[in-house]
Amino acid sequence: MYVFLNFEHRLGVGCKVLVVDLDGTLTLSRNTYELSVEALLALRRARDAGLRVVLATANGLDFALTVARYLGVRDVIAENGCLVHVDGVTYELCSGDMSAVDRAVLATGAVEPSPQNKCRKYDLAYVPKAANAVELVRAAVGPGYVVESSGYAIHVRPAGVDKGTAVRWLCERFGVPCHQVAAVGDSDVDVGMLEVGWGIAVGNATPAAKRAARYVAEGPSGLGFKEAVELILSGEACTP
Rank of each mutant, 00 (worst) to 15 (best):
Y152W: 12
V161F: 11
P113I: 04
T165E: 04
L83T: 00
C178D: 06
G60L: 11
V54C: 02
A201Q: 03
V146T: 15
V101C: 11
R45W: 08
E38Q: 11
A228S: 07
I154G: 08
T57K: 13
G199S: 06
T32G: 02
V196T: 14
A140H: 06
A58V: 11
S187R: 06
N204A: 05
V137Q: 10
V17K: 12
T90Y: 07
P240A: 15
E227G: 02
G219E: 13
S187D: 10
D23F: 08
T206H: 09
L41F: 12
R74D: 14
G235E: 06
V176F: 08
E8Y: 08
P220M: 02
A133M: 07
R173P: 00
G235L: 04
P207C: 01
R74H: 12
C82F: 00
L51E: 09
Y2K: 13
D62Y: 05
L233H: 04
L93E: 04
A205E: 08
V229W: 01
H85T: 07
G185T: 01
L40T: 11
A78H: 05
M98P: 05
A131H: 12
A68P: 12
L11Q: 11
V184H: 08
V189M: 10
D21M: 11
K121R: 15
R103A: 15
V19H: 00
S99Y: 01
V127R: 14
N6L: 07
D48I: 05
L65M: 13
G151D: 07
V105Y: 12
D62P: 00
S36T: 03
N132R: 11
A78M: 05
V137C: 04
A209M: 10
P128R: 04
D87N: 14
R103Q: 12
V189A: 11
L35E: 05
N59A: 11
L22K: 03
V191I: 09
A68R: 10
D21W: 09
L43E: 03
N59Q: 12
S99W: 05
L61M: 12
E148H: 01
D162I: 09
S95R: 13
